[in-house]
């Protein structure tokens, strides 16, 4: 069963009269429960593809089904709802809200989904405990290490138990040790929550955590020939 079915995706960026094609007929399919890593040189279209998969960008043409839903038929409101309830995001720079504690950061998607405050806080506390931050519920991002911040970001991504996690360079801001720890945790949580994941990365040290690695080259996706 497919979690992602993307066929013949095209996407170009326009700046004035200049049109730069980024995706040129990309086909990409991911099975439910699979962890697929996207690699490729800078500018190859990895982040654009990830943004399209996360309903943050609309392809110029092609078809895309996320979790059985045809994305091109979704209204902006439905796409927002899909992002909130079914897709979890892990960003390269964590994208935590500086003014909020770890607990409050994890509460954000729960609050956006309308959870009552008490229930949301209990759920957030459970998740933070699960990612090893039980002692840091009240800590603000500025007071935590990069590894801890990424743990908070992962807890936030999992808050509403999404079926799909999209991670953009999740270890890029971490040292090697923290990167390994985060990916170990990430895979464990994927298994526990039965989540599908697409991870964009340049970090060959974490390739071993992938079920499958795809390479984006010149706007197309192909199976990577060599995995470190």
């Amino acid at each position: 069963m497919l979690a992602i079915a993307a066929s013949d995706l095209h996407k170009s960026y326009r700046r004035g009269a200049t049109v730069t094609p980024v995706l040129r007929g990309a086909d990409f399919h991911v099975q439910v429960g699979e962890a697929v890593f996207l690699i490729g040189p800078s500018g190859s279209g990895k982040s654009t593809l990830l943004s399209i998969l996360g309903c943050l960008l609309t392809p110029d043409s092609g078809t895309l089904e996320i979790l059985g839903r045809a994305v091109e038929t979704l209204s902006a409101r439905e796409a927002t709802e899909l992002r909130l309830r079914s897709i979890g995001f892990v960003f390269q720079r964590f994208q935590l809200i500086e003014g909020l504690s770890a607990l409050d950061n994890v509460c954000i998607p729960l609050k956006l989904a309308g959870w009552p405050a008490g229930k949301a806080r209990r759920r957030a506390a459970e998740l933070l405990e699960r990612v090893g931050l039980a002692d840091h519920l009240r800590a603000r991002p500025g007071r935590m290490s990069a590894g801890q911040c990424q743990r908070v970001a992962i807890a936030r991504a999992l808050a509403l138990e999404p079926q799909l996690i999209l991670a953009d360079e999740p270890t890029a801001s971490l040292d090697a040790h923290s990167g390994q720890e985060i990916m170990t945790l990430f895979r464990a949580l994927m298994r526990d929550h039965q989540v599908t994941a697409v991870v964009v990365t340049h970090d060959p040290r974490i390739f071993s955590f992938a079920d499958r690695i795809c390479e984006v080259v010149e706007g197309r996706v192909r199976a990577a020939e060599a995995v470190a």
Partner: peptide
């Protein structure tokens, strides 16, 4: 602005 972009990305509606 980056925080508002994050909120939008993770599913905040315009009303929120």
């Amino acid at each position: 602005l980056a925080e508002f972009a994050t909120l939008k990305a993770i599913g905040a509606k315009e009303r929120q």
